[in-house]
Amino acid sequence: MITSFIHRAVMQGIPLLYGSTGEILTEKSGNLNLGIPGIMYVGGISGVIGAFLYENSLASPADANAVLAIGIPLICCLLGSLIMGMIYSFLTTTLRANQNVTGLALTTFGIGFGNFFGGSLITLVETDVPSITLSTTSHYFSKTLPFAHKLGWFGEVFLSYSFLAYLAIIIAIVASIILKHSRIGLNLRAVGENPATADAAGINVSKNKYFATCIGSMIAGLGGLYYVMDYASGVWSNDAFGDRGWLAIALVIFTIWQPSIAIFGSILFGGLYIVHNYLNDVINMTMSTQELIKMAPYVVTLLVLIITSMRKKRENQPPASLGLPYFREER
């Protein structure tokens, strides 16, 4: 049971990992993008639209081409979330709009966008259930290593995931290395900490903010895609993604802005997210207890917030100019 719990926890954790890696990159540039939940929705539905159109253009599922079946939803997802990132950057960096308001607006918009197109597609297929099933595409997305199930618990815990799951971990590791050990990372952190200093040092602040936010959005969008295509086996139903986007933002605080910690943090959060199902098997719980246990990820985040702010170590604090617009000639 423990192996299956870990397996499920990882599956739950991967969308969070995408979301929080994306948000960490964004926040490192000083942009507090609260639009991440909406962007993950848009990433998911864009992929769904791409896959839907591709699947419906085929005469039979057997005609599907693996490269196209993966490539089309992937590119649609990246494009959709990129556009969201661009909107956010344009509003906050170029027009210097309030970041919180912009982010919340994008989240509201993103969820609505997802539900609208999700609902529209559902009416196109004329089914009884309020969801779309893209089993052909999902089949390609959830392909695991062929020998994984032969290796017992080891295989299930470490090897039984699809390529998007491993990609999430690779992206988190690469992001971590870039932030800590490269000039790009140094510049980006400087922009988020003190844009005036970065500007005086000859770093293009706007460019850094745009790039970090857009790339961060695309990474977060992949989380939505992973959720639909792999975790939900290609089934899109409205609002199913739930509050995972907010959990990803909470995870950013939990990881004290380090993508490498996010890898473990996301699995932990994933585990906490589903632990009530498993605890139910061990000790019989009432519905209300289950609901209480569902709070676990948020409680953990609160605890981390309290502990990090009590220790007051400067390196563990959010980027100093997080949420603040930058304008060179303002005094």
């Binding site: 000039r183 140094l186 510049n187 952190r189 400087a190 900490e193 003190n194 005036a196 200093t197 970065a198 005086a200 040092a201 000859g202 770093i203 400067r314 390196e315 604090q317 100093a320």
Partner: peptide, 18 residues
């Protein structure tokens, strides 16, 4: 001062140089 508080001296000095 135009310095990034959480960086050390070296990181601040080389900041922005390519």
């Amino acid at each position: 001062f135009k310095l990034v508080d959480v960086f050390g001296a070296t990181e601040n000095i080389i900041l922005g140089i390519e």
